[in-house]
């Protein structure tokens, strides 16, 4: 403060200023708790796993001896699962979102019921989908414990999230764009397909990729539907598989402490996969960001 400020102004609001600062401090410390825990976890994993982060881990086959073990089948299967989830969840999720946002009549009770259901499904624990998948996909329609079944179940897990994210993105497209397109004589389908959908792609892409990175990290439903732990060959769509999170989980349970470090190293790989997906999401969002 300069001396030009009258004393009456400098002295008065001291208490309020202090409260203001106190609140800022409280917020800052909350952020540190959240961020610090994450940073600690990351640092611990990185320090533990770094020495084992080798080419063998990426290209080798699993083994009972930690010094010889790699995770290639698990890494590949995780990438396949991610692709499958993308192939299934994005078209279904986006079309559902379009229906709910652009076509569904909110006055009808069944449309409201669908909406509430989707919101709730997004909060259902993944293991429940695992049980469902085991009963209906693996055994029910007899897909078996194969990559395709895993992909379908993970699709179920993330579908509600994709729908919710896509709806948000579609809702964010201003009505003036729809009106402008309608005014030129476009049909509803043309308005949705050629204006609303392209305009909401950044939001849809971001939401879908974030959902995808969740799917890639899921363990519980995959254990339910038999992502087997020893697989010494590259996975195929209709073949048995193991996924990276399952491999990590299995390694942490091994008696030999060498596997603990291996698990940490594999966790770094998984982290790298998830983070690069998120990076793509951020890139897409920035690349196609629209102003209206």
């Amino acid at each position: 403060m300069t001396t030009a400020v009258p004393t009456s102004l400098a002295g008065g609001p001291r208490r309020r200023v202090w409260r203001n600062r106190l609140f800022q401090l409280a917020m800052l410390s909350c952020m540190f708790v959240a961020f610090g825990t994450l940073a600690l976890l990351l640092a611990d994993t990185l320090i533990t796993g770094w020495p084992e982060l080798s080419r063998r881990l990426l290209t080798g086959l699993p083994s009972t001896v930690p010094g010889e073990a790699g995770a290639r089948p698990a890494i590949l299967a995780t990438l396949y699962l991610g692709l499958l989830v993308l192939v299934f969840s994005v078209p279904i999720g986006v079309l559902t979102a379009i229906y709910l946002e652009e076509y569904a009549n909110r006055e009808r009770w069944w449309n409201r019921a669908i909406e509430v259901n989707i919101q709730n499904l997004a909060a259902v624990p993944a293991i429940v989908y695992g049980i469902l998948g085991l009963a209906f996909i693996v055994r029910g329609i007899g897909v078996g414990r194969v990559v395709l079944a895993g992909g379908l179940i993970l699709t179920l897990v993330v579908l509600p999230t994709v729908v919710v994210a896509s709806r948000e993105a579609i809702r964010a497209v201003p009505d003036s764009i729809r009106q402008g397109a309608f005014a030129l004589g476009a049909t509803k389908w043309q308005v949705v397909w050629r204006q609303v959908l392209p305009a909401s792609i950044p939001g849809i892409a971001t939401g879908s990729i974030l959902a995808l990175s969740r799917a890639v990290g899921e363990t519980a439903p995959l254990i339910m539907v038999g992502a087997i732990t020893y697989v010494a060959f590259n996975p195929s769509l209709f073949g048995p598989y193991t996924a990276l999170p399952v491999q990590i989980y299995n390694w942490t349970k091994q008696p030999d402490p060498g596997f603990q470090t291996l698990a940490a190293a594999a966790a770094i790989v998984l982290l790298a996969i998830v983070l690069s997906m998120n990076a793509v999401a951020i890139f897409l969002r920035n690349r196609y960001r629209k102003q209206w």
Binding site: P174, I177, Q179, G180, A183, Q291
Partner: peptide
């Protein structure tokens, strides 16, 4: 139709 606020497509 021309609207009150300009509404070009993005």
């Amino acid at each position: 139709m021309v609207f009150q606020k300009p509404n070009p497509f993005p």
